[in-house]
């Protein structure tokens, strides 16, 4: 029996990864990071971003909203200062990138593909707290889709354009992280596949909000935030299943995975691997427990590899 999976050129010893922005060496005292399949770093942008004003997080029933706003110190700091500190991490490190236009994504992908420790790139097309602006300062010159800010992963041609730019710039495995805030996620997944993505990861968070009735104000400093946690799992499963039926590239399932049962559900629906996000905050050992649980499940059901389980949902 093996838990090994392949995503593009990436070879993972097991299908469990820590989702971007939810895990890091800070948990090193509590968890052995090297037991995971891969570690996905917090999204970086070309230049520093200070992030959104507080409050940035709030509990919701069986979930949480976050509006961090992609706070990060930028690409240079990541390569010079952050990566050297990750020298104890022996598993593949996947960089997560976001930009305001195709050129930025291209530049980020190019620099990172030349960076020794980076094993793959996840392109964050779907951060709900830092929307892509088709007009104005943040405009992507070749894309015009009306006045409203939107997420790249809400638009097929924008998705295609960004994935192509990253593809051209980097020979590494490229994973496109998609948004659930769409009418048909399979069309976006298809666009990413056609543009050369090696895999798609889905789903990012749902745009939501919370209200404080005493102050009559939104709870989050950014007004809206991204909903994650067990509350979104059923929708994430449905989206993984739909996407599995439409694309050939591997799918990385994300969305409210708390234990091995959730992980197996995603794999049965078509995921080749999974990411654990919000669960890390609740139980930092969640990923490790999931790996153990999946192993036991496979032994019990006499399954020799993850591939056998991927998409094995019975009609």
């Amino acid at each position: 029996m093996t838990l090994e999976v392949r995503i593009g050129k990436l070879r993972l010893k097991n299908p469990v990864m820590a989702a971007s922005g939810t895990f890091g060496p800070e948990y090193g005292e509590l968890v052995d990071i090297n037991k995971l399949g891969a570690y996905i770093a917090k999204t970086i942008t070309l230049n520093e971003r200070v992030g959104n004003p507080p409050p940035r997080v709030v509990d919701t029933p069986s979930g949480m909203l976050n509006a961090i706003g992609l706070e990060n110190k930028g690409l240079d700091d990541f390569v010079k200062n952050k990566l050297p500190k990750l020298k104890n991490i022996k598993i593949p490190i996947i960089a997560s990138i976001a930009g305001v236009n195709a050129a930025e994504f291209g530049k980020l992908a190019k620099v990172l593909s030349r960076t020794e420790r980076i094993a793959a790139i996840e392109i964050n097309l779907s951060c709900p707290n830092a929307p892509y602006s088709p007009r104005g300062r943040r405009a992507c010159p070749n894309v015009q889709h009306g006045k409203r800010d939107f997420l790249i992963a809400q638009n097929e041609s924008a998705t295609r354009q960004i994935v192509e730019a990253a593809r051209k710039a980097a020979s590494l495995t490229i994973i496109a992280k998609l948004s659930p805030n769409v009418t048909d996620i399979t069309r976006i997944a298809k666009a990413a596949e056609e543009a050369g993505a090696d895999a798609v990861s889905l789903i990012n968070t749902f745009i939501g909000m919370a209200v404080d009735i005493e102050t009559k104000r939104p709870v989050l400093g950014n007004v809206t935030g991204g909903l994650s946690g067990p509350a979104i799992k059923p929708i994430a499963l449905r989206m993984v299943r739909e996407t599995y039926e439409k694309v050939k590239i591997p799918i990385i399932g994300i969305g409210g995975i708390m234990d091995y049962k959730d992980a197996v559900e995603f794999i049965l629906c078509g995921a080749s691997a999974i990411q654990v996000g919000t669960a890390n905050f609740v139980n930092p050992r969640a990923s490790i427990e999931i790996i153990e649980g999946v192993k036991k499940y496979m032994a019990k059901h006499k399954i020799s590899g993850i591939k056998e389980l991927t998409g094995a949902l019975r009609k």
């Binding site: 922005g21 939810t22 948990y27 992030g51 507080p54 940035r56 961090i68």
Partner: peptide, 10 residues
């Protein structure tokens, strides 16, 4: 998170 990973408490 409580440990500095999520950047949720600025």
């Amino acid at each position: 998170c409580g440990v500095g990973v999520c950047l949720g408490c600025p």
